[in-house]
Structures are given as C-alpha cells and as structure tokens.
C-alpha cells in the first residue's frame, strides 16, 4: 500500500508543476533553483578536479578548468581576436539561412497545397533530409572552392529542409473546417492562404526556423573544420591541434551562446505572434 502511495505522489508530481494556483514561493522557484544549482555544482566540480584527482601529464595537456576558459574567452573578446573570425562565420550563417528562408517558405507552401508536386518532390526531400549534409562538403568544396560560398551552401542545405518540411506540414495541417468556413463566405484561393493556411502554418514554420538555426550553426562549424581558412571553426581546429583546449571551449561557448540567443529571439517573436493560442497548446 505504501508503495502505491509513493507512486501516486510521483505521478501527481509529473503533471503537478502547473496545477495548483496557490503555490508557495519555494514551490514556484524550486525548478529554477535545482537547475541553477546543478550548473553551479558542475562548474565547481570541474574547477576543483585537479586538486583532488592526480592527472597524468598526457591528460593534463587536454585538461582545462572553467576559470581558465572564462579568462581565455574574456581575453579573446577584449583583444579583438574573437571578432574577425566570428564575423566570417556569421556572414556565412546569415547568407545561408536567408537563402534557405527565401527558398524554403514558398516551396513549402506550394508543395503543401499541391498533391502532385508533393508526390514528385517527396523522395528528394526524404533523401536529402535523412542524409547528413556533411557528405556533400567535399563535393561543394570542389565546386565552390574553399571559402565563403561552400560554407553558405552547407548552411543552406542544412537549414532548407527543416524549413521546407515544417512549412509543408503546417500547410497540410490546414484545418479543413476553417477552410470551408472562409470559402462559405466567398473566399478565393488567395484569401484562403491569407486568412487560414498561413496563420495556421505559422507555429510550424517557427519551429522549422528554430531547427534551421540549429542546423545552420552546425553547418558553419563543420564546414569550417574542413573546408575553410578563416572563421571561428578554423580557430577552434587550430587551437585543438595546438592543445589550446581553453580556446576550443571558448569557441564552443560562443557558438552555443549564439545558437541559444537566436532560438530565444525566435521564441520571443513566436510568443508575440501566437497570443491567440491557449497556453498549454505547444507547437509540435
């Protein structure tokens, strides 16, 4: 009996986080406190590992502590050595993502509204979406040379498919009933797209955009590892082969920070745009 009761409590806790309106302060900040705490513990443990664990000289070469990473990152920021490579990387990211949006959204809407195009494009979309974009890198380097445009191409291929597929899914998901409603008031295809299809697909498109940003950052990093001579990724590879582990981590933090910042911005826009949604309905 005792066993089932604890089970009950656990199950209740699963959904309970958003249930009770009268929660104490601690109950409300508890999740955030645990989250922050675990971060702190992780950083502290990492920082003090060298004091407790004797590291072999070979391993020490690969080891760094958070304070050293922070110092290196700060150094890179103030000395300006971060900005030039970051600018190179950001350019490739921005151009590639922009082209992906310009191509992906209209194509997604088109494929979503036409079953013929859908059937014909489907094998290609499936294949390119399943395949790691990285396998095209050697080919793209051959075609576009080492530099900006092969990176842009990788970013583009990576970001295109999440956008395309989510737009398409959103359009296909268009509520039949709502389409009939506006048609019953005499709406033409353009009005249907404007009044129902696009607003309905918007949450899907935003999710696609978030995914696309993640993949675009990944694309920049990876293509700079192999097919470039400048950019933050290049700095990181060089640092790795020179055993400057702090620089690798600093670069990782910058990329992660950018990734989180961008997706956070998208989330903000999404929240503003979707005020009409009930709180507990989340985009797929």
């Amino acid at each position: 009996m005792a066993e089932t009761q604890t089970l009950d409590a656990r199950v209740a806790a699963l959904g309970g986080a958003d249930a009770a309106p009268h929660r104490s302060l601690w109950r409300r900040i508890e999740p955030a406190a645990w989250g922050a705490g675990s971060f702190l513990v992780l950083l502290l443990v990492w920082q003090f590992v060298p004091y407790f664990v004797p590291l072999k000289p070979g391993t020490r070469l690969f080891f760094t502590v958070p304070s050293r990473v922070a110092a290196t990152l700060w150094q890179m920021i103030v000395s300006g050595s971060l900005w030039a490579p970051l600018g190179v990387s950001a350019t490739a990211f921005a151009i590639g993502l922009a082209i992906a949006i310009v191509v992906g959204l209209p194509l997604g809407i088109l494929i979503g509204r036409s079953s013929l195009l859908n059937a014909m494009f489907d094998p290609f979309i499936t294949a390119f979406n399943a395949t790691p974009r990285l396998v095209f890198l050697p080919l793209l380097m051959l075609w576009l040379g080492i530099g900006l445009w092969s990176k842009v191409a990788i970013v583009f291929i990576g970001a295109l498919f999440p956008l395309l597929i989510n737009t398409y899914e959103g359009v296909r998901n268009g509520d039949k009933l709502l389409i009939n409603v506006v048609r019953s008031f005499g709406a033409k295809e353009w009005d249907i797209a404007r009044l129902v299809v696009v607003p309905n697909a918007l949450p899907f498109i935003v999710v696609g955009l978030r995914l696309a940003i993640g993949r675009a950052v990944l694309g920049v990093v990876v293509s700079e590892f192999f097919g470039s001579q400048e950019g933050l990724g290049v700095v990181m590879v060089r640092a790795a082969s020179g055993f400057q582990v702090d620089v690798v981590f600093a670069g990782l933090i910058v990329f992660a920070g950018l990734s989180l910042l961008m997706t956070g911005l998208v989330k903000l826009v999404e929240d503003r745009m979707t005020r009409w949604r009930p709180e507990h309905v989340n985009a797929p």
Partner: peptide, 11 residues
Amino acid sequence: YASPLVALAPL
C-alpha cells in the same frame, strides 16, 4: 543539446 557539440570533435 542546443550547443553544436560537434565542435568538440577535434578535441
């Protein structure tokens, strides 16, 4: 999950 962990690959 959000960070491009592939960046750790060289290391």
